[in-house]
């Protein structure tokens, strides 16, 4: 898989996990009545925060590598990295990244041909 496609998959997974954690698990855990089934559901679901965090680590590394290959500015790089921390933002940022890479570095969207060392 290309770095570009890895980035897109990771962005999708991180985005979905963060949305579930922040928009479902957290409200259920903190807003539902104490001891209710809904609150217990929120508590159980909160383990997804941990999974989000670890996948986000992979996302950060992959996004950073992509940023070096595509020669992004520092600001755009930081926005792309931090997008995984704001619910729903990453879906928008991922579209921006796809558009930017397709426009500026289209060869990154294709599998890289093997280059024999010269």
């Amino acid at each position: 898989m290309t770095l570009f496609n890895s980035y897109r998959w990771l962005a999708l997974v991180v985005g979905v996990l963060l949305a579930v954690c922040a928009l479902v698990a957290a409200p259920a855990k903190y807003l539902a009545a104490d001891g209710s089934g809904l609150q217990g559901f929120g508590e159980d679901l909160s383990v997804l925060w941990l999974i989000h965090g670890w996948i986000f680590m992979v996302y950060v590394v992959v996004a950073f590598l992509l940023s070096r290959r595509a020669d992004w500015s520092l600001t755009f790089t930081l926005v792309a990295l931090a997008a995984g921390l704001v619910p729903l933002l990453i879906f928008y940022v991922e579209r921006q990244v796809v558009a930017k890479v397709r426009a500026e570095a289209p060869d990154l969207t294709e599998p890289q041909p093997y280059e024999a060392p010269s």
Partner: peptide
């Protein structure tokens, strides 16, 4: 264990911030 895994996570992000 969850707390320990979170701790590792945070330190990773700290190290990554330094790297960037």
């Amino acid at each position: 264990l969850r707390n320990l895994l979170y701790a590792v996570e945070w330190w990773f992000f700290g190290a990554f911030a330094l790297f960037i």
